[in-house]
């Protein structure tokens, strides 16, 4: 479980996050949504330690991650899997080497065991027999799936996904969404997804936080989202004609 308590973050005089508190439970897909500039990416980067926060707490199962130094953070970081918007795969390595990388770095398994795990993870994301392909040879959807395979290689307790559907066609988006949800439930991972894709939100958003002007403006499930009595939430959710015709 990840718990945020009054998290604030400023860049110079611009306060991007204002006293954000929230709880992300394991086994469900937690989503952070909001318009551009609402602070979603900053919040995610604060949660994974890429930005230091100015005030508040970020607790990973009771341990305040924000107060730890680089070395103290390592044990928690080993339990974090991250899927980046661009997948952030190492392009000097092939598919197999990418998924193998965290295992090589942090496990003392034999090479046979590590390769078994790599093949298992690739199979889990429906990618088989592509181990030796270069990253530049993969499609956008395949890159995201390799990114997921790398993220789950170390059997993480926490999974973060930054805009997992950006740049993907609707069909591939649904495949990626379902994959993240299945993995979350199967391994009881605490998953936090940063998205502004309403299709994803309505498909897999078990617990949603709506950020507006750096604040936790609204919180609830996707079924409550379409009934929310909040002007900013309604403007965001029903911005597209499709959502209007479907739910209003």
């Amino acid at each position: 479980m990840i718990e945020l308590k009054n998290v604030s973050k400023s860049f110079d005089s611009n306060q991007v996050l204002k006293n954000i508190s929230a709880t992300f439970k394991p086994g469900i897909t937690n989503m952070i949504i909001g318009g551009s500039g609402s602070g979603k990416t900053t919040l995610l980067k604060c949660m994974i330690g890429l930005h230091d926060i100015d005030a508040g707490e970020i607790n990973y199962d009771g341990v305040d991650f924000s107060k730890l130094d680089f070395k103290e953070k390592i044990p928690i970081r080993k339990e974090i899997g991250m899927l980046f918007q661009s997948a952030a795969l190492f392009d000097s390595m092939n598919v197999e080497e990418n998924v193998l990388f965290p295992l090589n770095m942090f496990s003392d398994w034999s090479m046979e065991e590590k390769l078994d795990r790599v093949n298992f993870c690739l199979k889990r994301v429906n990618l088989e027999n592509i181990n030796k392909l270069r990253i530049s040879d993969l499609s956008g959807g395949m890159k995201k799936r390799v990114g997921i395979a790398r993220a789950i290689a170390m059997q993480p307790k926490y999974l973060f996904c930054d805009e997992p559907n950006s740049g993907l066609d609707p069909k591939t988006s649904i495949i990626i969404d379902n994959l993240i949800r299945e993995i979350t439930i199967e391994y009881q991972i605490t998953t936090v997804i940063n998205s502004h894709d309403m299709n994803s939100v309505m498909e897999i958003g078990d617990h949603i936080i709506f950020l507006h002007q750096g604040q936790n403006w609204w919180e609830g499930a996707n079924t409550d989202l379409i009934k929310a009595a909040n002007q900013e939430v309604n403007e965001f959710v029903f911005a597209s004609k499709l959502m209007k015709s479907k739910f209003q």
Partner: peptide
């Protein structure tokens, strides 16, 4: 290039120096 394509961030999140 690794920095702007978030590959360095990916390493840091894994706990790699």
């Amino acid at each position: 290039t690794m920095r702007v394509t978030e590959q360095i961030d990916a390493l840091e999140i894994m706990g790699v120096n």
